[in-house]
Every structure is written in C-alpha cells, then in structure tokens.
Write a protein that binds this DNA or RNA. Structure first.
Lengths: 195, 195
DNA sequence: ATATAATTAGAACGGTCGTTCAATTCAAGA
DNA sequence: TCTTGAATTGAACGACCGTTCTAATTATAT
C-alpha cells in the first residue's frame, strides 16, 4: 500500500468514529482492532500510533459519548421550566441520545477480569453522570414544591432504571415509535411524586 | 490423563452447571470452551461429545434457565390472591430468580452477526416468556376490577422494562438490599393503574 | 541538499479461540 | 473370549486475536 500522508488529526477522528460504530454494533470483545482498521481504512499500526491499546480507546469513546450526552442535555434543559416538563424532556433526551449499545460494551469490559482497574473506575464514574442529572431535576421539583418531599436517592434510581430498561427496546424497535412509551413512563412516575 | 469412565449423564449435567456459572460471570464471548473444560474437569473433546458447539450449549442453558424461572413462578403464583399481591410477588421473583447475567450473554450473542439465525430466534422467544407472565397478572387485575381498564400491552412493557432495568443493579449491589427498591417500583406502578 | 523526526504500513509474534480427529479405554453382548 | 461400539482424551488445526516492530515514506528544519 502507498504510504500517503494525510492530516493525522482527522485520521484519528475517523478512526474514533468507525470504532464507535463498531463497538456499538458488535460490542467490545466482538470488535477487533482489525475490524476497526478495515472499516476506517487506516492500518493497524496507525491505530496504535494514536491509541495506547484497544481498552483505552474504548474507554475514551465511552467518556466522550457520555460527555456529549451531558452537554447536550445542559443546553436543552433551559427550554423547560417546570421540573415535570424537564422530566419529559429528559426522557426524550435519553431515548434519542443515550447510547445503550456502547454502554453494553462497557458492561462487557467491566465483567472481564483482565480489564485494568483504572478502566473499571473510569467506566463506573461514567454511570454516575446521568444519575446526577436525574437527581437535579427531582431536587428542583421538591424545592419548588412541585413534587412531594420524598426519598430523592430512591426516586433517582427508580427513574434511572426505568429509562435505562426502556432504552433496551431500541435494540429491537424503531426509536421514534418508542416516544409514547417513554412519555407514559414519565407520566406514571409523576403521578406518584407530584404534589 | 486416565480415561476413567463415569456416568455420562451426570458428566453432561456437571458441564452444564459449570458452563452456566462461567457464562453468567464472564459473558458469552469471554467464556471459552477451555474455561468450561477446566472448570468442569472434563476434556474439551468430551464437551463436544455432548454438545454440538458453544453457541448451542449457551442457547440450551438460556432456555433451561428461563423455563425454570417460569415454572418456579407458576408454583408460587397461587400463594397470592389479588393481582396487586401477585405483582409484588413477581417483583421479588424477578429480583431473586431472573438471571440477568446469562441474559446479558444472550444480548452479546444476539448482537454478533455470525450467530446462527436459529439461535437468534430461540433467544428472542425466550424474552417473550416473562412478558407473558406480567401480562397475565395485569389482565387478571383488570377483569376482577382491581385495575383500571387501560392499554394492557403498554403496561406490560412498562413494568417489564422497569423490573429489567432494576435487575441491572444486582451487578453492583447486594440482592437483598434491593428489595425495598423493587417494592417501591411496584407500589408506584400500582398507584397509576389501580382503581 | 541533507539530516532529523514524525508518520504510516504491514509483516511478524506469541497466544488463544472454537472445532476436529485419531487414538485409546472400557463395558457389554455374542 | 472376542467383538463391537460408546465414551473419553488430548494433540492438532487453521483462524484470528491484540500488540510490537521494522522499514519505508514524507515533511520540516538546517
């Protein structure tokens, strides 16, 4: 093959994009570095020029994905005023932006005894982010008298697991068609916590 | 090694037990046939004497697990009379008997493009079983006037995803300590559908 | 023009994977 | 006792894994 010279940074970006796609589709261990090489068009050696190893590449992508998810939510949050509206908005945000396939890869990596402890820690910290966002909404609702005074931690976990569970459906169903279901979940949840 | 002769059926059983354990702990692709061989004490060749291949072995275990889950529920169901009680009972049954780790392996297998279509179909049929059990409870509740007349299919999916999402917590938290959370989810759900 | 360093490809490495197979042992029937 | 076939092993196979290394190419600075 020719050793053309291309912008190294865009190369890195392209590798990350293709890797993200493959990890999402096939999971962590079922995606090989060769797969990423073929899909991106860059040699295996070049991938290792940019990234220390497969595990670190994955963690980086997971972090980036979660970061984008959070920033995107922060930008959208102000569109809603009441905590109830925010909860509906969050449900839609989760439906359309929460990348369950990639996180599934994270569980895979996490359950592998050979994963480095540092990666495990980093992945764990990732899971905390959405919970924080949920909690913030619930706290606002309580403070403004919109929601009852209740066990915030419990509520946070409950809405988190519900939305997470619903997200699994995106594997088998069209995203758009799931909107009513997500909204229904929120409305049922609100029935219990609203004043 | 000596080629001792042992009861072949118990050998098969022991292999299945160890395989089940490993698949649950490490997932599908991270569990090798060699792992199963070492853990069970039977040679690799002997595993292939009993099972066509790794994929079929896994599907068999998944089917068996789900079957047992369902039978166990059927036996327990009569302990509860009202549909509401049954829903609480089901939540506990799911918490203590729903083998998420193994099903995680199922998702792994399902997302692998090289899995045989037959295995995929069999895994999909598995996911239907618990939904049927949830639906039955909801239908009973409606027929006996305990629950509102509502969209049963929607309710089924909603309680199913909620319980499924909550089950993920068993990966990081003690099962016993999750009881209140599961019960709280059911009580919130009931608030919305009870007459 | 030359030297140096960054970049890129692809072969090579040691290992493991799922699977197959020949060889062997054992139990039971003839 | 001899034969047959089921049971069992472990070596062997080809493929692929993540990673490393060498060599080649190119850009840049001198």
């Amino acid at each position: 093959m020719n050793k053309r010279r291309y912008n190294s940074e865009t190369a890195k970006q392209e590798i990350m994009e293709k890797a993200w796609l493959l990890f999402s589709q096939k999971g962590y261990s079922q995606t090989s570095v060769s797969d990423i090489s073929k899909a991106s068009g860059y040699s295996k050696g070049h991938i290792y020029y940019h990234f220390e190893n497969k595990e670190k590449l994955f963690v980086l992508l997971a972090q980036q994905t979660m970061k984008e998810w959070f920033i995107k939510w922060m930008n959208k949050e102000n569109e809603y005023s009441s905590a109830s509206e925010k909860l509906y908005g969050m449900a839609m945000h989760v439906l359309y932006n929460y990348q369950t396939p990639l996180l599934k890869g994270g569980q895979e990596l996490a359950s592998n005894p050979e994963s480095s402890t540092e990666s495990l820690k980093q992945l764990y910290e990732l899971a905390v982010i959405p919970m924080g966002a949920y909690r913030a909404i619930l706290v606002q609702g309580i403070e403004e008298g919109e929601f009852k005074k209740g066990n915030v931690e419990e509520w946070t976990v409950l809405i988190g697991t519900w939305l997470g569970g619903l997200c699994q459906l995106t594997n088998t169903q069209d995203t758009r068609s799931l909107e009513p279901l997500f909204k229904k979940a929120v409305s049922m949840f609100l029935e219990s916590i609203q004043n």
